[in-house]
Amino acid sequence: MSYNEKVLDHYENPRNVGSLDKMDAQVGTGMVGAPACGDVMKLQIRVSADGIIDDAKFKTFGCGSAIAASSLVTEWVKGKSIDEALAIKNKEIADELALPPVKIHCSVLAEDAIKSAVADYRSKQSQQAKGV
């Protein structure tokens, strides 16, 4: 299996590896996948007061394409509003990284990770609003 240069670049120089404080109300954490399936992605976003994602971090257990897809979405979501981030589709990720058909699930997982991180952030916000 030959890798596309962009995959190799993200794999070898992954952007935004790391963790944000998951207890922070401004941070949304998404964890998708399963170890038994061979990939788990953790994506974290920090949303500023004006609703813009100002930081994103990831950690991924998975193949090179899964790591590259996670790295790519951290770059893409930064500076975007939540709605803009949610508009990122797996196809764009797959196209950008020229993923072969057997690796499409990596891009699906990355899209799911964004959704999951946003959902976590929104749930925290609504709980805060309720004063919990």
Binding site: V17, V40, K59, F61
Partner: peptide, 8 residues
Amino acid sequence: REMSPLWE
């Protein structure tokens, strides 16, 4: 492992 959420 530094990149792995499971390891974390």
